[in-house]
Amino acid sequence: MNYLLNNLPEYSAVICFAIGFSILLLNRNMIKKILGLGIMDSSIYLFLAVKGYVAGTVAPIVTLAEQAAGVDTTLYTNPIPAGLVLTGIVVSVSVTAILLALTVKLHEEFGTLNIDEIIHMVREEDRRKE
């Protein structure tokens, strides 16, 4: 039972991940899909931030005095997850922008945001051409 309670922040991260993932995959509304993507990406940042945390330490910015004397690494958190989160944020901003632009275009063309209806309309048009 003990190990089940140790990683609570990670549990919340993966629960959010699964929720966002399911929304992105299964919801039919484009805007909700984008919200799902946002939840999914944020949960990954939470997961990484938790991974970088070491109890009782501060952000990894050393001082000049320490640089000269040698850095005590037990005082600082792990810098790698912070860098990964930064990259992840930039990527997710980019794909969210593209998805939003697609949504604007879809609404202009089809007048709806429901992806099932849109697929249905496209198929009908294709059939009518034959």
């Binding site: 190990y3 990670e10 629960i15 991974k51 945390y53």
Partner: peptide, 18 residues
Amino acid sequence: FIAAMIITVSALPNIGDA
């Protein structure tokens, strides 16, 4: 999906451990 992920993550090392 949540259940599978929680079982996986519970096997990871404890957080905050140096």
